[in-house]
Simulated scan of single mutants.
Amino acid sequence: MPRTALLPFLLLLACSVPATAGSFAGTSAGASSGGSSASSGSTSGDDKVVLQARDDAAGFVASDGRIRGARLEAALRLLRERSDRARDASDMQLARAILTQ
C-alpha cells in the first residue's frame, strides 16, 4: 500500500472522536478520489503538503501549541478543505495525525 494511501487511515487513528471517525475517513477518501479522477498527481501533491508539515507538527505538539509553522498551517488548511471531520478536529488532533505518517 503506498504511503499516500495511508493518510486517511492515519488521520482516523489520531482523531480522538470515535463516533465520527468512520465518517472522517470516508469523507477524506471520497474527496481525494473524486478530485483526482482527471489526474493522479493532484492527490499526491496534497499528501505531500501534509507529509512536509511533519517537522512543524512535531514542534507544535512538543510546545503544546505555542509554535506554529507555515507548513503546518498549510496542511491544517488543506485537511479542513478536504474533510468536514477535519474541520471539527482541533489543531492538536490534526498535528498528531500528521505525526503518525
Rank of each mutant, 00 (worst) to 15 (best):
M1R: 01
M1C: 07
R3I: 02
L6D: 01
L6M: 10
L7V: 15
P8Q: 09
P8E: 00
F9N: 00
L10Q: 02
L10G: 03
L12I: 04
A14M: 05
A14V: 01
C15D: 14
V17R: 00
V17E: 15
P18R: 06
A19L: 03
A19F: 04
T20M: 10
A21R: 11
A21M: 10
G22M: 13
G22L: 11
S23G: 13
A25Y: 11
G26N: 12
T27K: 08
A31T: 15
S33N: 06
G34P: 07
G34Q: 03
G34V: 13
S36N: 10
S37Y: 09
A38T: 10
S40Y: 00
S40K: 01
G41P: 03
T43E: 04
T43G: 14
S44Y: 11
S44I: 09
S44V: 15
D46E: 12
D47Q: 09
D47I: 15
K48V: 01
V49I: 02
V49H: 08
L51F: 06
Q52S: 05
R54F: 05
R54C: 12
A57T: 07
A58G: 10
G59W: 11
G59R: 15
S63C: 03
D64S: 14
D64T: 15
G65D: 01
R66D: 12
I67L: 05
I67A: 04
R68P: 02
A70T: 15
A70M: 01
A70Y: 12
A75G: 05
L76E: 06
R77Q: 00
L78P: 10
E81C: 11
E81G: 09
R82S: 10
R82V: 11
D84K: 07
D84V: 14
D84W: 01
R85S: 07
R87F: 04
R87C: 12
D88Q: 05
D88C: 12
A89C: 15
D91N: 08
M92R: 00
Q93P: 00
R96V: 14
A97T: 03
A97R: 07
T100N: 13
Q101H: 15
